[in-house]
Amino acid sequence: MPSELVENYFRTEKLPQIWCPGCGHGTITRSIVSAIDKSGLDKNKVCIVSGIGCSSRAPGYLDFNTLHTTHGRALAFATGIKMAKPDINVIVIMGDGDSTAIGGNHLIHACRRNIGITAIVYNNSIYGMTGGQYSPTTPKYDKGTTAPYGNIDKAFDICNLAASAGATYVGRATAYHANLLTSLVQNALNNDGFSLIEAISICPTYYGRKNKRGTAVNMMEWQKNNAVNISAAAKLSPEALEGKLLIGELKNSPEPEYTNEYQKIIDRLKKERQ
């Protein structure tokens, strides 16, 4: 029997989903739905937009207004929806390649405008849908099918990128830290402006296998043992933090939201003509 959450928010007839056994994406998707549930949003006023890739299949299973767009462009489509109907809660689900390679330009500009969208990046450090090529978040010297001798590109820190570009709420959690992820997404939904949540996923099929990370369970254990909450990190020495993954709320500094700013122009012009 599916849980009440699944019953209420998933298109159960579309399940099971296409993700591989052990993939972190299912857990992450459930955390997002849980956050939507806890936020008490009207399903009719929620729109979930995605690009192309493994993560981008998520909206198909969710019972909202859902839009599966072209590779990298989810945020640009979402921007149009938000501008046309600012009362819609727009949530964008992207992968790491989707959001930071082909869609990198849209990402930084959505951050800069502080438009009221909640973006969630499912980061599994690999292009899964196409079979395991290295992505902009594949750690240096790790392998992918297009980096058979080790990847020499430096990886992006998506949260730092988003925070520097102007996102007003930024947080990171892992598939293992599902409850933290839910609360971060909840806070993000509560932020008027642009929020970015990086959800570290696992890809045992490609990334794990190529890089000898063991089973899905081993990869989850890695997340459990190596993630440090930002609140705890303050008390740790730089040596102790070496190689650790910072999770938690990384930025929370609200600023005026884009569509509200635009509405002010419309209102001002209306007033001037009266």
Binding site: C47, V49, L67, T69, T70, R73, A76, F77, A78, T79, G80, I81, K82, M83, A84, K85, I88, N105, H106, I108, H109, T259, Y262, I266
Partner: peptide
């Protein structure tokens, strides 16, 4: 509403999104 997007592709994408919203 008018929007100057970050690039041409974004402009095309945004009008599709807006049209879906009516």
């Amino acid at each position: 509403r008018f929007m100057q997007m970050e690039d041409e592709i974004g402009g095309m994408a945004a009008i599709i999104g807006a049209s879906l919203a009516g």
